[in-house]
Simulated assay, not measured.
Amino acid sequence: MRFAFEDEQLELADAVRDLLIREVPASRVREAWDSDDGRLHDVWAKLADMGVLGLMVPEAHGGFGLSEEELVLALTECGRVALPDPVLSSAMVVAPMLAEVIGQEHPPEGAVELATTWLERLPGGATAVPAFPAAKTVAFANSADVIIGYADGELHVVDPSSVRLSPERSVDGARKLSRVEWQTHPDTLLADGDAARAMIRNAWNRAALGTAAQLLGLGETMLDMTVGYVSERKQFGVPVGSFQAVKHHLADARLQLSFAAPMVHRAAHSLANGDPDAHRHVSMAKAMASEAVMFVGEQALQCHGAIGYTTEYDLHLYLKRSWALASRFGDARWHRRRVAAALGLDPLT
């Protein structure tokens, strides 16, 4: 069996990388920190034109009908530049969830039409975000066109203009968080009972996986920045990168990322192909990606020294994004416990 991406998948990732590296330098991320909604709307429009926002939208509804395998590659590139826009939420979480609503056997009255309306708007750039029941905050709810919320066993379409938003601060200033208060209504019902619970579980797994993919990209950028810095910074007349201790730090960081990446890709394959153990693979991926990027961040700070702690230096943009995402949708400890439970092990032993 060949465990590798197809050429077309890699070409898509390269195209996304080229676009984002050109359009999202660190200065644009700083711009998002200072804006009201944390969005780069021109970049969002270009991602829509490229088709990234419709990768998991079925072809019958204006998308490409692809899977998590393609989207994790694109999300890794989003993480590489610390893109603040909610590609994960719209393209990987909400789009497949709306497709599941359309495909359910006994949908509530009006649910298919409602889901179809929003699903077909996503490839063109409409912004959709999920409100998970266990999440205290929702990212980018203040700029979303629609919120898909779950409460009391029901999945609903929520109009952002009808909710109460309470802004919350994030360690990453480009991630605009809000507490969301909303009311259910029969006309906004998409699914209920077991169907709704299955959809929200699937969506949460995709969110955790997509976050892990973004963490890989963030780790790559911080490592590249650090290698570049220690190659130029000199002590005793030589680059500090020539010191054995520094080489060991960075080699260990590379090793952590190299082990985490295949786990993320395996989890994407599992979700795309309906593997019954996909939830376990997702947790293994999120745990390893979270631990890897935290380790890379520590080494990056250690090797940069005092300059790495300053807000004027770009490292902090990627470091703080990694802190925010490492704990989002379950931190490494939570996911390791989930793996242990799936294997029938006692996580305390």
Rank of each mutant, 00 (worst) to 15 (best):
Q9H: 01
L20Q: 11
R22N: 15
E23G: 09
V24L: 09
P25F: 07
P25E: 08
V29F: 07
A32N: 08
W33Q: 09
L40C: 09
H41V: 10
D42N: 13
V43F: 02
W44Y: 08
G51F: 02
L53P: 03
G54E: 09
G62E: 10
G63P: 02
F64Q: 15
L66Y: 12
S67C: 03
L73W: 13
G79L: 08
R80V: 12
A82D: 05
L83V: 14
P84V: 03
P86F: 08
L88E: 02
A91F: 04
V93F: 04
A95D: 09
A95G: 06
M97F: 05
A99V: 03
I102E: 08
H106N: 11
P107K: 05
V112W: 12
L114D: 11
T117E: 12
R121F: 11
A126M: 10
T127N: 06
V129K: 01
P133E: 04
V146K: 12
D152A: 09
G153A: 14
V158E: 00
S162N: 10
R164C: 02
R169A: 09
R169W: 04
V171G: 15
V171C: 09
S178M: 01
Q183C: 08
T184F: 06
A191Y: 04
G193K: 00
A195R: 04
R197P: 01
N205M: 13
Q214A: 14
L216H: 12
M225A: 09
V227T: 05
S231Q: 13
V238P: 11
P239M: 12
Q244W: 08
A245R: 02
A245I: 13
V246C: 11
H248L: 12
L250A: 07
A261S: 15
L271E: 01
A272C: 10
N273K: 02
G274T: 00
D277A: 14
H281Y: 12
A285H: 02
A287M: 13
A287T: 11
M288V: 04
M288R: 08
L301A: 09
G305D: 03
T310M: 07
T310L: 04
L315A: 06
K320W: 14
R321E: 06
A326R: 00
S327H: 04
A332N: 10
A332P: 06
A340S: 15
L345Q: 02
P347C: 07
P347S: 09
